[in-house]
Computed example of a mutant assay.
Amino acid sequence: MKAPMFTVRIWDLPTRLFHWTLAVCVIGLVITGNVGGNAMVWHFRLGYAVLALLLFRLAWGFVGGYWSRWSSLPLHPRQALAYLQSHSTDQTSAGHNPLGSWSILLMLCFLAFQVSTGLISDDEIANAGPLTALVSSNWVSWASAWHKNWGKLIILLLVLAHLLALLWYRVKKRQPLVPAMLHGDKRLPQPVTASRDLFHLRLGALLVLCLAGLAVYGLLLLGG
């Protein structure tokens, strides 16, 4: 007799929209950064959008759906070791598994650092970050070099690793992870805590996003 499966809401709508919007913005940043010239106007705009998204995700990690919260990420080394030894449980892997949790955290941290260096970068041609006047020329020079070289390379490697992991789960483990980030639900062999995804919570997420946008706008005003 086939075991019953349970459909559980794992990813709330704000988390899903954040994920796909961030992906589009990162792709746009890579394209506009490589094109240069007039495309740099959009490079800066997309950078500001990413910063607002990251601030939103930081806050949403405390008030969002159950599986979107930082407290639900299995980051303890013992959890990672148990997962590698295939001793993880459905309760701990319904959201991000331990390795996925660390990869997501690294991605968000490096994106935040990359955007931060972009704010104080200067290509010495026609484009300068809005906050370059607030730091020394040595910091501007270092940030510019990092932003264009190591920072960009690390982000691309993290994105590639993320895509390869998705492919590995789809082909080797027969676990397609992308659909759940589209519709929010997963079919699991046992019931787990579901993420609340109600209308008033979605309105709350919109408010958090607006506040994040205002915070970015206020930061840019510091540059004069």
Rank of each mutant, 00 (worst) to 15 (best):
S68Q: 10
L163T: 06
T132E: 08
Q91K: 11
L156N: 02
N97A: 09
L108I: 09
V8I: 14
L22Y: 08
D12Q: 04
G184K: 02
Q85D: 13
L214N: 04
N38C: 01
V24K: 01
L209C: 03
A194V: 04
P189D: 15
P191T: 12
L54P: 03
I125V: 14
A145L: 06
W168Y: 15
P130W: 13
R69S: 04
L105R: 01
L157Y: 09
L201R: 10
P14W: 12
L220A: 11
H147S: 04
Y66D: 01
A145D: 11
Q79C: 05
L55N: 03
P77I: 12
A52S: 06
W11V: 02
F113G: 15
L22S: 07
L166K: 03
R78M: 11
T21W: 00
P4V: 06
N97F: 14
M107P: 00
C25M: 08
Q175T: 04
P191C: 12
S86H: 12
T89K: 07
N38T: 09
V135E: 14
A194G: 05
V24Y: 07
L134P: 06
Q190W: 10
L211S: 13
V30W: 15
L158Q: 05
L105K: 01
A215R: 03
H19L: 06
L177D: 05
A23V: 11
R45Q: 12
Q91F: 10
A3I: 02
L164E: 10
Q79D: 15
L53P: 01
G204A: 05
L203D: 07
R170Q: 14
T193E: 15
G184D: 10
T89S: 15
Y83M: 07
L166A: 12
A23S: 10
I27C: 08
L219I: 11
N127A: 09
S101M: 04
L22I: 07
L203K: 07
L108A: 09
L203T: 08
P176M: 10
L207I: 15
V171S: 08
F110A: 01
L22R: 03
W67E: 00
S71L: 07
H43A: 04
N138G: 09
L221W: 14
H43M: 05
W42M: 03
A161P: 02
V115N: 02
R174P: 00
P179E: 13
V171K: 07
S101K: 04
P179Q: 08
W60C: 02
W102R: 05
Q190D: 07
I27R: 01
S121A: 14
Q85L: 12
R174F: 11
R16K: 04
L221P: 00
A143P: 03
I27D: 00
F6Q: 08
R16P: 00
H19P: 02
A194K: 03
C109Q: 08
L73W: 13
W20S: 01
L188S: 06
L166S: 06
R202M: 10
C109S: 14
V208D: 05
P98D: 15
Q190K: 09
W60V: 00
V26M: 08
A23F: 10
H19R: 03
W102H: 12
L158S: 05
I10D: 13
K152N: 05
A194Y: 10
T132Y: 13
A143Q: 05
V24D: 02
C210N: 09
I10M: 11
P176F: 15
H76M: 02
S88Q: 15
T89M: 08
P98M: 11
A215W: 08
E124I: 06
S195W: 12
